[in-house]
Amino acid sequence: MIDYSEIPVNPDLHTVAFYNAENLFDIFDDAKKHDSDFLPRADKRWTFKRYQNKLRKLGYAISNIGRKENGKHPAIIGLAEVENAKVLKDLIASKHVKNCNYNYVHYDSKDERGIDVALLYDKTIFTLEASEKFSLELYNDAGLPDYTRDILLVSGVLDGYKIHVIVNHWSSRREGERETEHKRMAGSNKVGEIISNLKLNDPDAKIIVVGDFNDDPSSKSIARLLSGFHLLNPMQALRSYTRGTSKYKRQWFLFDQILVTRNFYEKTENGLQFEKANIFDEDFLRVSDGKYKGSPFRTYVGKRYQGGYSDHFPVYAVLKTQKK
């Protein structure tokens, strides 16, 4: 483990992060959710000990995102693949984040896998004002509802400045990239609607869009948000053949991204400004050897327990408060 303790705290820098937690399920059966794989007697043997190990590892990773830049834990973290409020309560009570003053925002969705998005925030830095969930109307080939994750909007005040954070986990490419593209476009359209409504009330609204989009920065769904709603994508320059946030068949993808409105780039004497964005891909989050060396150290590979963190690396943006 890395020792970040000697990095001085910078009170003017704040980290906003996103992390796909890879199936953060509790160990109890919920008849309303498809959680049968994550039970103690299931093939995966999802035991209390393994659950506790997962919470501890996620907590350690979360507590150190952005710490190199500002010497402290993130102020805000969007999460994907969480089962319910219980796992969030257990997470913020776990060893490495129990002193981070975190609270959470979460709504149950109708997602077919039983996983939701959520948001953690440090109550001493971010004051929650409002939150709302937005569902997507998707249908399968038979014309029946195809339930997926909701989109979460959280509004509040970060160190004296009003911001809005939109948390996403768009539909996967499991059935093929082109075959499922319309689902991610639906997510993009919904985010566009949310942004438009926010700007109707406040043309200068500062908006951060985070998520696992299951699309890369060059994909249509992301490009539409950039061109149609004046967002900037500081993650664009980070993807390469040797770097990303998830890896499949030896290829890196940058599905996890953070987008911001252009006003985060305005230089003012009094405001909240974008400083930098990055992938949090420290060595402890990686497989250390073997054919998957360098890939995210995940909890499971298929049904085989690995005991790692997640199959995604977190991403983060550092914001700076400019005060007279």
Rank of each mutant, 00 (worst) to 15 (best):
G160S: 00
N201Q: 14
F18K: 05
H14Y: 13
F284M: 11
L272P: 02
L138Q: 11
I207K: 02
A21Y: 00
R298C: 02
V301R: 11
D289H: 12
F25W: 02
L259T: 01
H164T: 02
D204L: 15
T242A: 12
D29Y: 14
P8G: 04
E69H: 13
E193A: 10
E266M: 12
S63D: 06
I151S: 05
A223D: 06
K206P: 05
F28N: 13
R304C: 07
G192I: 01
I163R: 04
S155V: 13
Q236V: 01
K303D: 15
E175S: 15
R184D: 13
G187N: 07
T268Q: 13
E175A: 15
T124P: 07
D159G: 09
G192Q: 04
D26R: 04
A277C: 14
N168Y: 04
N53E: 14
K323E: 14
P314L: 06
I195N: 02
Y300K: 04
A80V: 09
G294Y: 11
F264K: 08
L88R: 01
D202Y: 06
T261G: 10
K98L: 07
P296Q: 11
A17F: 03
Y248K: 15
K190Q: 12
S246A: 08
R178A: 12
H96Q: 11
I207Y: 01
R56K: 15
Y147C: 08
V97D: 05
F25S: 03
Q257N: 09
S219K: 03
V157Y: 15
K291N: 06
H169P: 15
I76N: 03
E181C: 13
V301K: 12
F48H: 14
I92P: 01
H312W: 07
E269Y: 08
P145N: 11
R262M: 07
M185L: 06
Q273W: 00
I77N: 03
K276C: 10
Y51C: 09
D204P: 03
T127Y: 14
E137Y: 01
K247S: 05
K110E: 08
F284I: 10
S109Y: 09
Y309V: 09
E275V: 14
K123Q: 12
A317L: 00
D3N: 08
D204T: 14
G187Q: 06
N140E: 10
V105W: 00
L238Y: 03
N189D: 12
G302P: 15
L79M: 12
A277N: 01
S218E: 09
A21V: 06
A21R: 00
D256E: 08
H73I: 00
E179H: 09
K33S: 05
D26P: 01
A142M: 05
V154T: 11
L226M: 11
V301M: 11
K49M: 03
D90W: 11
G294N: 08
K324G: 08
V287K: 12
